[in-house]
Design a protein around this nucleic acid. Structure first.
Lengths: 384, 384
DNA sequence: TTGAAAGCGATACCAA
DNA sequence: TTGGTATCGCTTTCAA
């Protein structure tokens, strides 16, 4: 291995001079700088990361803790990881990847042994045991997600409550009076990751505020799960005219089921999806969506960490405002289903002649012209 | 920071003794070992990774180079990453994540600065420029994929040629005489990753060997792309009775399109998918598949690297035999479509009365009873 | 503008 | 069974 001493010898200078041309921490005459750089290039010298970490007392490595079960929502996780790694490189940092499975032990290991300068933790739960551990570490951390008590740790996330609210508001403004939520899988609610609850509370608030009827169900991310979920929606709210789908994996199935039932989107039923903008491309309908800006969140997390590292500022929470992009899947509601024996979703109603009669005519409101693109600019809220 | 000297002082021994109780590289009396361990626990001591790397001359860190564009095939990539990280941890190693975007510079950086002891490179292309670079590195590497010239570097992959062959063979044995391949997106062929070509050549070999008619098309991973692909298949091979889908992202769309056209699977058309076993769960049909064993491949890559690191053996190439699992999407072909004006896929045929007439009666062969699970055990081929 | 040398924290060789 | 200490490669203070 070629060391700094080798370079120094080749250039006829001392090791410290080589170090200084590399770090630029003191002025060097053009002549010696040139000689040193030539020797570096010639010998193919690269500073030894371990030795450097020992002397500098930092590694230029970030830890990223990701939920790496081959689980739901894989594309979103992948986007976070990608954007974190890319952003880290732009600050001359590398990324050490840990799985959530290692729990607090993994955090203590990489932080305690000084392998990393800072940590980014994804998929944070409401009462995450890792949060108190993180706040005891010497290294700063940023959470992607929002625990109940951040304990002085920085957080970044989409503003999920505002997202739930925005989805319902959009539908209400298009005249819908009865909306259903196809939610994330039950396991997401059980795990208590929080974002599902926050979305739901925004959804519920808006439903109350706009005086709508609604129903919400968790949904397994399989075809059968989607079918089951729509069946239950149908049974409990037969006059629903719009679906909010907060479940990427079920999206394709939902659309397929509606299609099979002969329900056109948006003519017969509106669909508003919460998912990354680009997954909408793989689907047969140009979906109106609220974006999950995984790349922005990841890049922001890294940026905050860098600011934390050089003490530019302290911990803060940043929630990104939702951006709704109107495409072709949301329109005004159909006032009444042509077939009184079927629900708005096109499912046959269960026997009784009273079934399927809409509980009342929708008042309509003043729907804006179709085709308008509603895009609010993202803003950030900062908690000091 | 608490150092080994602090522990030594607290335990009343020398630093070297502490080091030896930690490494177990020489015998220590029970008494001192107990005192040292107590001090370690009391002080919460953890060896400094940088210092250790400097002295030991290795880091216990692996580099993993992944294709981190938020691209196609995301779930499979995620599985590789997960299995690599998990396997690495089981050998007490950590994983530094690099993007393919960094190219050879990234490899030289982390290897040259001794950040990692070894490298795993995913998504290797046929003439990958990284291969020659890798073979010049001081650290061993394992490729996931199979370049034309491995240049002495170890490789692991699914045996894609055997996979293509197995898919066709399975259909031929069920009596199909005319099969179509829905392939990966054009970009995969253009990139020259090789696995697509190897699959195709296995497919083609089998088609020739069993005397079938066939057509193959790349397929964009969107709904429209799938529709376009099926349209072309239909135009060129109207009597196709089976589809081999080697495109995870298009799978849902293909099924949806068939369903919309009123073609039942497998009654009207058989579908055989190449994808991880578990994605079949999200789809409306229990698909017969050839598994993409990403987790096995990842774990194997790590294992090979560990053997390389402690010189247990040299470079080798290991190709995993395909495993076909029969479920409900492949059956015997329908001898003739009931509607002479439509193709086997249910698409309307273009005008001419000669269209849609099967070119000949299928000979049938001797299809095994439906429902039998065909699972061959994976084997490995080793290149010395 | 440059050099000498004292750390940084752990390992492992040489002695005892 | 244990201790002393040179060593790993780099950074940075102190001197010149």
């Amino acid at each position: 291995m070629v060391s700094i001493a080798d370079v120094a010898r080749a250039a006829g200078v001392s090791p410290s001079t080589v170090s200084y041309v590399l770090s630029g921490r003191r002025s060097i005459s053009a002549a010696t700088r040139a000689r040193v750089e030539a020797s570096i290039a010639e010998l193919g010298y690269r500073p030894h990361a371990g030795a450097r970490a020992l002397a500098r007392r930092h590694t230029n490595v970030l830890a990223l803790v990701a939920p790496l079960r081959a689980d739901i929502n894989v594309p979103v996780i992948m986007k976070f990881v990608t954007s974190v790694v890319t952003a880290a490189r732009s600050y001359d940092h590398d990324v050490l990847l840990l799985t959530k499975d290692e729990g607090t032990a993994g955090l203590e290991r990489v932080a305690g042994s000084a392998m990393v300068d800072a940590l980014i933790v994804m998929d944070v739960e409401a009462d995450d045991v890792r949060v108190p551990v993180l706040s005891r570490l010497r290294q700063p951390a940023v959470l992607i997600g929002l625990p109940h008590r951040p304990a002085g740790i920085s957080c970044v996330d989409l503003d999920w409550a505002a997202t739930g609210y925005a989805a319902v508001q959009h539908l209400a403004e298009h005249g819908h009076r009865s909306v259903a939520l196809v939610g994330p899988p039950p396991v997401v609610y059980q795990r208590g990751t929080g974002y599902a609850e926050r979305f739901l509370s925004g959804f519920t608030d808006a439903v109350a505020h706009f005086g709508l009827a609604s129903v919400a169900h968790a949904c397994e991310p399989t075809f059968d799960g989607a079918a089951e979920c729509l069946r239950r929606v149908d049974a409990e709210l037969p006059d629903a005219t719009a679906l909010v789908v907060h479940n990427e994996a079920a999206l394709g199935s939902v659309l397929g089921i509606l299609h099979a039932a002969g329900r056109r989107v948006p003519d017969d039923v509106s669909v508003l999806a919460i998912c990354p903008d680009d997954v909408a491309l793989g689907l047969p309908v140009r979906l109106t969506t609220v974006d999950i800006p995984a790349d922005e969140v990841g890049a922001l997390a890294v940026e905050m960490l860098m600011n934390l590292l050089d003490g530019r500022h302290g911990a803060q929470t940043r929630l990104l405002a939702p951006v709704l992009t109107e495409r072709d899947s949301c329109g005004p509601p159909r006032p009444r289903h042509p077939d009184p024996c079927r629900s708005q979703l096109g499912m046959p109603l269960g026997g009784g002649p009273e079934g399927g009669v809409p509980s009342g005519p929708p008042d309509g409101g003043a729907p804006p012209p179709a085709g308008v693109v509603v895009v609010s600019t993202p803003t950030t809220r900062e908690t000091p």
